[in-house]
Write a protein that binds this DNA or RNA. Sequence first.
DNA 1: CCATATGTATTTTTT
DNA 2: ATACATATGG
Length: 613
Amino acid sequence: MTDSPSAALPDYLSGLNDAQREAATYGSGSGVVAGPLLIIAGAGSGKTNTLAHRVAHLLAEGADPSRILLLTFSRRAADEMSGAYSASPARSRVSMPGWPVPGFSWAGTFHSVGARLLREYAGRIGIDPAFTIHDREDSGDLMNLVRHELGLSGKGKRFPLKGTCLAIYSAAVNTRKPLAEVLLTSFPWCAEWQTDLKGLFLAYVNAKQAQQVLDYDDLLLYWAQMVSEPEIARELSERFSHVLVDEYQDTNHLQAALLLAMKPDGMGLTVVGDDAQSIYSFRGATVRNILDFPEHFDPPARRVTLERNYRSSQPILAAANEVIAQARERYSKELWSERVSSERPQLVSVRDEVDQAAYVVEQVLAQRENGIQLKSQAVLFRASSHSVRLEIELTRRNIPFVKFGGLKFLEARHVKDVLAILRWAQNPRDRVSGFRAILLLPGIGPKTASRILENIQAAVPGCALLPEQPVQERVQPAWLEFATLLEGLPQRTWPASLEQVAQWYEAQMDRIFDDAAMRVADIQQLARIAATYPSQERFLTELTLDPPEATSDEAGVPLLDEDYLILSTIHSAKGKEWTAVSILNVVDGCIPRTCPPAPSRRSKKNAACSTWP
DNA sequence: CCATATGTATTTTTT
DNA sequence: ATACATATGG
């Protein structure tokens, strides 16, 4: 690969180093689709950039953009790669002629691509194409409903709560392991309920089917089921000449299985990842996928390793390499950088959280004195709640900040309420949405809501007479108004339907919330976002699966020009970079989270914080 | 019986 | 900020 004279290479490849170029052009010039390729890409080694160049190179050699499937881990990564992402404080690294590419539309997360494929193939696998997608909270609510119906919640029983039930179910689905094994290895304290759980899950699955509802796991599960039909598998295999997967170390067994079903011989399949950066095992991701990838094929997949780091200075890499070296099984690689620095990462001990917050603020301000903008600095932490003290301190001292990760716009109650009304109008069988919507009325509680939903389910589909549902007399006027709203929605065009719902909801908000004002602003924001989607169906689907940057990430940004500090969970920070970074709560067992929990050298908890210049 | 007010315990990480 | 359990009021 690298022995061809660089003068013969297209311009856009000249910015890559040898290993990156080998990865980008693997299989080039042979005239046929290349065999399987595994790119092991260390942190900061230009992974995303390399993958984007590989796509560009495939296109330059005549590949059809509509036949390229690019699976990424987050919406941000997909945008970054298709050239749509520009808001990053870090420089945009993808700049190639003809980019973004028109017609290159199959880029997204496994879940969003799954949803798209399933809507298209619904008829052939026996599901309704108008299915509703439940997020985790909705799924939990449905699990709770079923749990109550089966009498598993009652008196003095210590049956697992809905969240735990859902986690167990999800783990079993994503790892494709039997319930007994999942319970034993991951939820041993629930093992005694195995029989009841089995029944619960069966009922949960039935409920989803009856209501035409798919949860996150179903998007993968049905996809896998779909490609187990040889004919559909062949179709999809031909439909996508190239399949490229980013962050492969964070895929789970199910995702690997459906990839292999679509590309059994690995032709046209490229996966990129770093076994040392697997951080989603709690969600069923297994590092085995990337470790075992080459041997799935005969001959084994080609492997290219990117070890040159462009992000950090050598002392930081040395520390990272030390940590990585403790992994039991891994692809050997040694990150290196030309960026020398005499500054080493610092591990700072502080007395408690208050001191930690004060120290970090001092550091941040000192760095700003040194000319590093707040925007070029970040504070990272493992769990969203770890930053509360710091947020208080920042607010007190009038330092602007934006927090990534943690609770999101779309998870706020008022936003969910509005979406529930809309979803229920679109899919009247969706009990969770209906329940939530009906409870919004004053004077109607869980009992009345359940009764109404049962009446509607029992009635002839399409002929459920909403206004005639029995409610208490004093509730009657409000109920009629609500029923009129719902019945009018299908006639409305998009986004008028959402505006109609928002208008009704805003009239209820003063009664429901003490702090209605801020929430009203959110609803108006939601209406603005809605206007950017072409249809209600796409709005509802894509909003749950790919929350737009504007909601989850930038909602709190006052002005683009303004300077602000970045706070982020480590998970949300994946792939981003800053000039100066502080990490909170660096305590044994929390960060790094190594397997053998070495006895702590320092006795104080919450006592560490490190700054990496 | 049913809706709502109050109180108490809890919060990894995300599609 | 929310979820669940319990108490009170219509």
